[in-house]
């Protein structure tokens, strides 16, 4: 790039004066035009009255909001066409809102009509300091360094560095409060051999004959509801991992994965409800396609094909819960999930 078109700065004039080789002549500031309020004192007085009226009205409305607070009963309701709501709330809100609006409108009217509006211009200055200033500061710094003995007294210097350095340590140690590390808790849920599969909310156990083809049941393990009385945190943690969906699919439409032949009962299959992408609970199930869809990022799993991912960002199929029937004929788990439920994590990859 050539320097011809750049502003030429004279070295001896650090401040302000800049000689610019301009391709187009500076047209200067356009001639000032006066407003009606500048030439007509009556118009100016009228605007003054307007602005003062707006400010006064704002004050009245502010008082009005206080009156509304006490005067209008808390539970009164207003109806105005399709609009309806709490009358007390609405009156206070309207009064304060209008008061703020009037103060703003008054200020703008004042600034636009009455305050001086003559255009002025100010030249830009170079950003760097003058050579003299730079030299002064450099000398002062060097003198300070020499007088403090920072370079000479090494013991003090080392002590200071040690102290400052160790001050960083608490910031690292405090990060431990983000933990404790989950340990093996990510690998197992409260499902276990013989735990009944029960309806979420109602906690009713399910018999295979109760489910017909096309059925969806949002279910939980039978040992989850009692946890609620022990500890709310434990309950929520357990629930977040143990929620399942149970579906019944026509057996001829199912493609069973080798090794999972006895995991379902007459087409009744049970999968984790927690999406393997980022862990949203999913139960958007289409019985015609056997697809279950995650509402967060549209991951789609085919429940008739071992919950294989057919679309979306999820990397792994939904873990399947092996099912059996207990002596009373209710659906139970054969074991816990054979793999971790929910999103992937570091150790798992």
């Amino acid at each position: 790039m050539s320097d011809e078109k750049l502003p030429v700065v004279k070295a001896d004039e650090g401040h302000g004066a800049v000689e610019v080789a301009e391709p187009i002549a500076d047209p200067g500031i356009e001639p000032h035009e006066y407003r009606i309020t500048d030439i007509d004192p009556k118009a100016a007085d009228r605007v003054e009255r307007q602005v003062s009226a707006m400010f006064t009205l704002a004050g009245v409305l502010a008082l009005g909001s206080c009156v509304a607070y006490f005067a209008i009963p808390r539970d009164s309701v207003f109806e105005f066409g399709p609009l309806s709501g709490n009358a007390n709330n609405m009156a206070i809100g309207l009064c304060i809102g209008l008061a703020l609006f009037l103060i703003g409108a008054g200020a703008i009217q004042w600034a636009k009509k009455l305050m001086v509006d003559e255009e002025i211009s100010e030249d830009r200055h170079p950003a760097h300091s003058s050579p003299e200033q730079i030299q002064d500061i450099t000398e002062a710094f060097k003198q300070g360094a020499a007088e403090s003995g920072f370079g000479r007294r090494t013991l003090i210097r080392r002590g200071l560095f040690t102290g400052l350095g160790l001050l960083g340590l608490p910031a690292v140690v405090l990060l431990r409060d983000l933990g404790p590390l989950p340990g093996r808790t990510l690998y197992h849920t409260i499902w276990a051999k013989g735990i009944r599969v029960v309806n979420d909310v109602t906690a009713r156990p399910i018999k295979p004959a109760d489910m017909i083809v096309g059925q969806l049941v949002n279910a939980i393990p039978a040992n989850l509801p009692p946890l609620q009385e022990e500890s709310a945190v434990e309950y929520q943690n357990a629930r977040a991992k143990a929620a399942v969906i149970v579906v019944r699919i026509r057996p001829t439409e199912i493609r069973t994965k080798p090794g999972r032949e006895n995991w379902g009962i007459d087409g009744i299959l049970c999968y984790s409800k927690i999406c393997t992408h980022v862990g949203c609970p999913i139960s958007l199930y289409e019985q015609t396609t056997h697809h279950v869809l995650c509402p967060c990022h549209q991951s789609t799993f085919d429940l008739a094909d071992s919950a294989k991912v057919v679309f979306g960002p999820a990397a792994r199929p939904l873990p399947q819960l092996p099912l059996a029937v207990d002596s009373e004929g209710y659906l139970v788990a054969q074991s816990d999930f054979t793999e971790p439920v929910g999103p992937s994590f570091f150790e798992r990859g």
Partner: peptide, 18 residues
């Protein structure tokens, strides 16, 4: 009955009072 793609919630699992 689970019309179109909607799954079924049979009376035995999702009982009439539910």
């Amino acid at each position: 009955t689970g019309p179109q793609q909607m799954p079924v919630f049979s009376d035995q699992v999702m009982q009439p009072e539910d």
